[in-house]
């Protein structure tokens, strides 16, 4: 089975029903995508599949419908993506565990809506839980990244 992650294609011999989350974390060692609940209730495992936000814990390997982008593929410490740079400027993360999922969800949101309102951000991000309560800074960082991306 072939799986493309962050522009790299892997040929894998794994159970077809293995969730993408665990393929990423335990097989490909891409640990930026996090395990939070296993039932698509917290958003910590959010990745992009063909540009669309998906909960990797609920997508079986055989059902992956396109190329996968994880937090590692969005940007790197040396060359962060606009959203990641905004996250750093706004000092969003506390424990940070949910933030990869938050950022990937925000990436999907901005791809669809380059200038979201507060209400649209709230709606788009409602599936992502943060137990540290970093929500106000997440919202500010999304607005900031959106304006940077529009100017770019």
């Amino acid at each position: 089975m072939d799986l493309t992650v962050n522009d790299q294609t892997h040929t894998l011999d794994l159970p077809a029903d293995m969730p993408l989350l665990w393929v990423l974390r335990d097989v490909l060692n891409l640990t930026g995508t996090k395990f939070g609940c296993g039932v698509a209730a917290c958003g910590a495992c959010t990745v992009l599949i063909d540009g669309e936000a998906a909960r990797a814990c609920q997508v079986a390997l055989a059902d992956v419908w396109g190329p996968v982008t994880t937090i590692e593929g969005l940007g790197t410490p040396e060359a962060p993506a606009a959203l990641q740079a905004a996250w750093i400027r706004h000092q969003v993360a506390q424990c940070g565990y949910c933030q990869a999922g938050q950022i990937m969800q925000a990436a999907a949101l901005l791809a669809e809506n380059p200038a979201p309102s507060d209400a649209e951000i709230d709606e788009g991000m409602a599936g992502n839980l943060c137990r540290c309560g970093t929500y106000s800074r997440i919202r500010a960082a999304i607005h900031d990244a959106a304006s940077q991306m529009r100017e770019a």
């Binding site: 974390r25 060692n29 640990t31 930026g32 995508t33 969005l74 410490p77 996250w87 750093i88 993360a93």
Partner: peptide, 21 residues
């Protein structure tokens, strides 16, 4: 001050307990 852990946490490179390999 900018937190020294921020960049890693925004790029998925911070290592938590479950990320030990």
């Amino acid at each position: 001050l900018p937190r020294p852990d921020m960049q890693a946490k925004a790029t998925g490179t911070a290592i938590y307990g479950v990320d030990i390999r």
